[in-house]
Computed example of a mutant assay.
Amino acid sequence: MSLLHRNILKILVTAFAVTLFLSCDSKADDIRRLSMKSDGPVTEGRGINLKYVDSGKVTAHLKTPYIKNYANASFPYEEFPDGIEVTFISEDGKENLITSNYAIRYKGTNLIDLQDNVVLFTHDSITLKAQQLYWDQSNSWIFTDQPYTLILKDGSRNDGDLFDSNEDFTNFVSLNNVAKQYVKENSEDL
């Protein structure tokens, strides 16, 4: 084999090895890039209409135009940037409805942060309005440190700066209340 052929063969083998090496390195970079966590959501959904079922019974019905799921974040959460509407159904079939223009559900703590035009309608005609409301699903507790308005079935209302309550409002604490109560007069007491 002539010297020229050997040099050409060496150049071809070297070029092939370098190409193979660079090709593998490029694929390794691609694989590393795919496995890296990103700041964006893992999944997104539009026009969501979910029903939560427990022991064969529907316990909640969630509707939202848009959801972002950040399940790979260090503190996983779901974001509802275009609002949320959730109907909660108790074991005895009573329904409570809550709406807001924005919400975040923190998966690790089961805490939901509802913001901007939050309205809660209970099965017994109580309406709660606030700009922000936290709902602790694990402890069945709702609270806010923002001004709120609570309107009862008879039209009585309670405005305050913060409140802390169980879900059915039987254990209710509030601060700086201004209230309007309607009281029936009993003719027997006069």
Rank of each mutant, 00 (worst) to 15 (best):
D145E: 13
K94A: 06
T87H: 07
D124E: 08
R157S: 14
N139F: 01
N158V: 10
K129Q: 12
L114T: 02
D92R: 10
F75E: 10
Q137H: 03
G155T: 02
P147K: 11
I151Q: 06
E85S: 12
L152R: 13
A60G: 10
N72C: 01
E95T: 15
V118W: 07
N101Y: 09
Q146W: 11
I112D: 00
I84R: 14
E85A: 13
P81N: 08
F121C: 05
L111V: 06
V53I: 15
F163L: 01
Q132F: 01
T127Q: 14
I67V: 15
A103S: 09
S100P: 10
D92V: 03
T144F: 10
L97T: 13
N96E: 04
K153A: 05
T87A: 10
D92W: 01
K107D: 02
D159P: 00
T59I: 15
T87G: 02
Y148A: 10
A60N: 09
R105H: 05
A71I: 07
T109N: 09
S125F: 05
F121Q: 14
T99W: 09
K57A: 10
D82G: 05
A130L: 05
P147G: 14
G93N: 12
T109Y: 01
N69S: 14
K153E: 11
Y102I: 00
T64P: 09
A73G: 03
N69K: 04
F75W: 03
L62E: 02
T127M: 07
L120K: 11
F121I: 12
D154V: 08
F80C: 06
L133M: 03
H123E: 03
L50N: 13
S74I: 11
Y52I: 13
S138I: 03
Q137T: 06
V86P: 12
D161N: 08
D145N: 14
T127P: 14
K57G: 00
V58C: 04
S55P: 15
T149G: 00
I151R: 08
N72S: 06
A103G: 08
Q137C: 03
I89W: 09
N139Y: 01
V119P: 11
D116I: 00
Y102M: 06
Q115Y: 08
S100Y: 11
F80G: 07
Y52T: 13
F121D: 11
E79M: 10
K68H: 07
F143L: 05
K68A: 07
T87F: 07
L162F: 03
K107S: 06
K63W: 06
G93D: 11
K51Y: 15
Q137F: 04
A71L: 09
S55T: 10
Q146N: 07
V53H: 09
P76A: 12
F75V: 07
E85H: 14
D82T: 04
S100E: 01
D82Y: 03
A60E: 11
D113Y: 00
Y52S: 13
L150D: 10
Y66S: 02
Q115M: 12
V58I: 15
Y148N: 12
E91H: 08
D124P: 05
Y134E: 00
